[in-house]
C-alpha cells in the first residue's frame, strides 16, 4: 500500500527547515520523511519506494550534487528538487541537465514548492 503512496524525502542539514517543510507538506496532504544528511538518506532509503527528493545543495559531508551522482550510479531514477540558500546559476544549469526537476532558492514562496512537488510526482 505505501509503495504506491508517493513520499517526499527531505534531505537538509537545517533542523528548522526540515521541520517546517515536513509540516507544510503534511498540511498540503503529502507524506514526507526527513534526513539530516545525504549519508543518512543513502543508509535508510529503500530504492523500491516511490516519491521525490527535496535536496539541499550545500550540506556538510556529502552535498546535494554528490548525492545526485551517487543515485545515478546506483541507477535510482528518483526525481530531485534542489533547494539552496546560495544559488549559483552554472551549478543549477548542470543539475537540471542531470535530471533535476527544479531548483528553488531559499526563501521561496511555499506555493512554488508545492507546484514543484506536483511536477515531480507527475513525472
Amino acid at each position: 500500500m505505501w509503495t504506491s503512496d508517493p513520499t517526499v524525502f527531505i534531505v537538509d542539514d537545517d533542523d528548522a527547515f526540515r521541520d517546517a517543510a515536513g509540516k507544510l507538506l503534511r498540511a498540503y496532504g503529502f507524506k514526507s520523511e526527513a534526513f539530516a544528511s545525504a549519508e543518512d538518506f543513502l543508509d535508510q532509503f529503500d530504492p523500491s519506494r516511490v516519491g521525490c527528493l527535496l535536496l539541499d545543495l550545500q550540506m556538510p559531508g556529502m552535498d546535494g550534487v554528490e548525492l545526485q551522482s551517487e543515485l545515478r550510479r546506483r541507477n535510482i531514477p528518483i526525481p530531485i528538487i534542489f533547494i539552496t540558500g546560495n544559488a549559483q546559476v552554472p551549478t543549477a544549469v548542470s543539475n537540471m541537465t542531470a535530471g533535476a526537476v527544479d531548483l528553488l532558492e531559499k526563501p521561496f514562496p511555499p506555493q512554488e514548492l508545492i507546484s514543484a512537488i506536483e511536477r515531480a510526482f507527475g513525472q
Binding site: 528548522a16 531559499k106 526563501p107
Partner: peptide, 14 residues
C-alpha cells in the same frame, strides 16, 4: 539567513 527565512516562510504557510 536564508535558512531561517525559508523556515519562517513555510511555517507561516502551514
Amino acid at each position: 539567513l536564508n535558512q531561517p527565512l525559508a523556515a519562517i516562510s513555510m511555517y507561516a504557510d502551514c
